[in-house]
Nucleic acid binder design. Structure first.
Lengths: 118, 118
DNA sequence: CCAATTGTTCAATAACTCTTGAACTAAGGA
DNA sequence: TCCTTAGTTCAAGAGTTATTGAACAATTGG
């Protein structure tokens, strides 16, 4: 159970862009950004994908250096690596998140029926 | 020979990100940005990929709404759709291009041996 | 008209991506 | 200890992407 994260200077632009180019992962990042500072566990994203599939997407985000995952008991706490991303690619994350706000037709985490218990 | 381009509001964020997530295409966009305003023909990018492969990547960029291609005699003039991208996703293109400048390890158009005749 | 130039289309292929269900691990609580 | 909860790993399949070479169009210049 290693959970390897790239160092800040190992973060690669094409990999970050490709990883953010998936609607499910974009929705995850968007939600993380909206709850900035609050570590979330995977179950928060279960309306985006199945448990198995989430594990896959969260691993992609982690391996790209977009998120950090830390073990906490039986949970995993996920956070955005905002500081590292801002250091490496200033302004990129903000403009992607702002752009995601412009793009209707993107999946969201707590929409409609599930928003009540958020 | 239609050469369809999406309208500004048809441009999709995940598709743009996925398209820019390829090192060859990122290099194309970077070069276009460095020659902003000057329409370039495909041959400018021949050190990035084969003729066939370039056609493929340029079609991807066009279909995503990142570039515009116009027929001009036997050539095709390629331009960045900066205005449209800035309108749809303000700041995104600039931060991606700036980020590309930070990322050593990206392919470039006129590097080293080919730069003499640029 | 003929040939060269510029780029596209097609078919094929290798490689990768996303998604799934079943089986598994690890920690926490009754 | 046993069960539940949280998440991972594995194997498999469907689909997509990148790359190539051969063949094709279209325009331009001689």
């Amino acid at each position: 159970m290693s959970l390897p994260h790239p160092t800040t200077d190992q973060i690669s632009l094409p990999i970050v862009l490709a990883v953010l180019g998936d609607p499910t992962r974009l929705a995850i990042v968007r939600y993380l950004a909206s709850k900035e500072g609050v570590p979330l566990n995977c179950s928060k994203f279960l309306d985006l994908a199945s448990k198995t599939n989430l594990s896959y997407h969260l691993a992609k985000l982690r391996e790209a250096g977009v998120t950090r995952s830390e073990a906490a008991g039986t949970s995993r706490l996920i956070t955005l690596r905002r500081d590292d991303l801002d250091k490496r690619f200033p302004g990129l994350l903000d403009s992607v998140i702002a752009a995601a706000g412009e793009d209707k037709a993107l999946p969201m985490v707590g929409t409609a029926e599930t928003e009540i218990d958020a």
